[in-house]
Amino acid sequence: MPEVKTPLWEVFIRSRNGLAHKHVGSVHAADATLALQAARDVYTRRGEGLSVWVVPSSAITASDPADKDMLFEPTASKIYRHPTFYEVPEEVGNM
């Protein structure tokens, strides 16, 4: 397998204090320092962020799309897991 000189990195940006970092895309870079700079240069040009994370794409373990039905289909019928399923009595007031 040929050596990958500029591997892929996933980019996460936190737009405001108090919010979570959100995945925004990916960049190619030789190492973590340059990946962080590339992420800054590509994804924060319009004031999108206060903080940037980069993670080697190879470090991410992903679910298999073929397992979609097995993993996620069963939850579709469990509507009682949503809080809106329950009627809150008037007397409780705002929760």
Binding site: T6, V27, H28, A29, Q37, A38, D41, V42, R45
Partner: peptide
């Protein structure tokens, strides 16, 4: 040389 560096230089 790369899209990433193109934006860095333009920035």
């Amino acid at each position: 040389p790369t899209l990433e560096e193109e934006l860095a230089l333009a920035n």
